[in-house]
Design a protein around this nucleic acid. Sequence first.
DNA 1: TGCGATCTGTTATAACATAACATAACAGAG
DNA 2: CTCTGTTATGTTATGTTATAACAGATCGCA
Lengths: 133, 133
Amino acid sequence: MARRGEQVRADVLAALLAYGRPTSAYDLLRDLQEAYPKMAPPTIYRALSALVEQGKVHRLESLNAFVACQCTHHDQAAILSICDDCGAVEETVAPKLLDQLTQLTKKSGFKAVRHIIEIHGRCASCGGSEAKA
Amino acid sequence: MARRGEQVRADVLAALLAYGRPTSAYDLLRDLQEAYPKMAPPTIYRALSALVEQGKVHRLESLNAFVACQCTHHDQAAILSICDDCGAVEETVAPKLLDQLTQLTKKSGFKAVRHIIEIHGRCASCGGSEAKA
DNA sequence: TGCGATCTGTTATAACATAACATAACAGAG
DNA sequence: CTCTGTTATGTTATGTTATAACAGATCGCA
C-alpha cells in the first residue's frame, strides 16, 4: 500500500494536465475511479494538497478548483488570470508586485505568508481586451 | 412578504458587524434563525450576494466566509489581509497596484474584471512583522 | 520479533452552495 | 377594483466541496 500514494499523485497530476483547465476535486475523483474504483474523496484531497505544496498544482480559491501549474515550477505565488468565459487560466509572475503587496500590509505590522491573487475577466480568445463578445 | 428582504439584509449585515471577523454563511444562518426560525440557506445567500454587490460585505474566497466592509464604501477591489491566527481581516486599498495587475494581464490580451487579492499571514497583535509567536 | 511512527484506505459526516419550484406582493391594464 | 404579469421571497430538496476519525498496512529500528 505504501507507494500507492505517489502513483495516485502522478495520476492526479496527469488528469489535471489532460484537462488543461480548472477542475474540481470531484471531477478528478470520477476520472481516477476508472483506475481505482473504490477511491474516496480524502485520497484525492491528500494528493492535491501534496501537489499544491510541491508547487505542481494551483488551487483556485475563487472556483474551488485545481489547475496544473503551467510554468516550470517557480516558488513564488502566481498571479492567476481566469477567463470566466472559457475557463482558461494563465499564470503570471511578478515578484515586485508581490513585494509591494507585502510592504503595503506590513505598514500595519502584518506579516504576509501566502498571497492569493486571482483575476477574473476574459481572455484574448474570448474577446478580452477589445470589445465584448 | 415584500420588504422582508431588506430587513433580512440589514440583519445579516448587523450580525456580520457584530462578529467583526470572517463568518460563514451557516453561522449567520444560525444567528438569524433566532429571529426567523424557518430561514433556509438560500435566504442567507441571497442577502449576502446583495450585500456583496453593494460593497457592504466582502467575500473571502479562501475561507468561504464573509466579512463586513470596514471602510467607508470604496468601489474598488480591496486587498484583504487575513490573520491565520486570530482571524482578523484588514482592508487596504491600492489603486495603483490594481492597475499594475490589470496592465500585467492585459499584455496577453486579458481583460480584468474582478480582482481577488487575499493575503494570509499574521497580524501585528499575533506577532506579525517581528518574531514567530 | 515487537514496537512505534507514518502513510494510506475507508466510512461517515460536516460544511458550503444552489437548483427548482411554490407563494406572496405589487404595479399597471382594463 | 380585480385581473394578470412580473418580480421578490420562501421552501424543499439536493448537489457540491471538504474533512474528521478511525482502521489497516508498511517500514525502520531496537
